[in-house]
Amino acid sequence: MEYQIEILKSSGEKTKFSLEKLRASLNRSGADKELVNQIIDKVRDELYQGISTKEIYNRAFSLLKKKKSFFASKYKLKKAIYELGPTGFPFENFVAAIFNYSGYKTEVGKILQGKCVTHEIDVVAHKNEETTIVECKFHSEEGRNCNVKIPLYIAARFKDVKDFWDSKPHKTKLNSGWVVTNTRFTEDALQYGKCIGLKLLSWDYPKEDALKDIIDRLGLYPITVSTLLTNREKQFLLSRDVVLCRDLIGDSFYLDHLGVSETRKERVLNEIKQLCNS
């Protein structure tokens, strides 16, 4: 039955409902096989022609949350990254944190001189006598992808900075440029990025080493995944540069600043610890 159902994606496109995709996203939450099957059965029974992916997500999220909040937190990862907006600056801090946990030393919002003009670079990362510059392309609305104009623009900026860098003595070599987005790249963008030598990282690219895979593997969940904190509380924490769940474990005094009760504070920290250890 499910293969006859057409669903509406956030981009406005229609596509066939995929049981496998729903199962894969539920499996990533850490829920056991029995619970995943129960949720799939309920969601499948409630499908109708033209149902939106958002409605399917909301139903699965609600069923997971009833069972265990940290399952729901992991399941809402993609939505949580959108919630880092709208300015994109928390996303830059989030990307910097990913590089930090991969052994880099990072600087956010650094001005670098190019051969022709100066450039504000989102993240500059240093490791093993090499320097990498990273541009972050954040979209706060679902359904928007990074087209070929983005890597074209970034490649030009990288070349300008590298031309100047190579003309002066530096302690490190500037060897690579990255484009990181919370959405997806179009096929043209991927093709151009590969051709020009830019490293591309998106929600689902490269396969098995995409943004979602790195976050799960390193346990680097943004604070916005919490199902127990309110939006106001999340924005307060983001404004204090508490971007990762694991940051809050070390800086839990911010919950006192917010007036969170001891009982609720314990629940929030327990949810976050489960996430980081999962």
Rank of each mutant, 00 (worst) to 15 (best):
Y192R: 02
L22A: 03
N270P: 01
K78H: 13
F253T: 13
K9E: 15
I7V: 15
D247C: 02
I56T: 11
G30I: 05
N175F: 03
T224S: 12
R144N: 08
K67A: 11
N175H: 03
K162S: 05
S62H: 13
S62L: 12
E83T: 00
E208L: 04
K173L: 10
K159S: 10
A97E: 14
S25I: 11
A72Y: 08
E2M: 04
N231G: 12
P86K: 13
F70I: 00
D247Q: 04
I81M: 07
A31F: 05
I121C: 11
S29T: 05
D216E: 15
K273P: 01
L237Y: 12
V148M: 00
K21S: 12
I111H: 02
R217K: 12
V260R: 00
D163I: 04
I121Q: 07
K42L: 10
K127Y: 07
S69I: 14
D213F: 00
Y221H: 13
D209E: 12
T15H: 00
L26D: 09
T224W: 06
Y48P: 07
Y221C: 09
Y205V: 02
G103S: 01
K171G: 11
E271H: 09
I121Y: 08
N93K: 15
Y82R: 09
F236M: 03
I214Q: 02
G177Y: 04
V268I: 15
S62P: 02
L19I: 09
D251Q: 11
I111F: 02
L275R: 06
K79E: 15
D166Y: 00
I51Q: 03
K171S: 10
R28V: 05
P90Q: 09
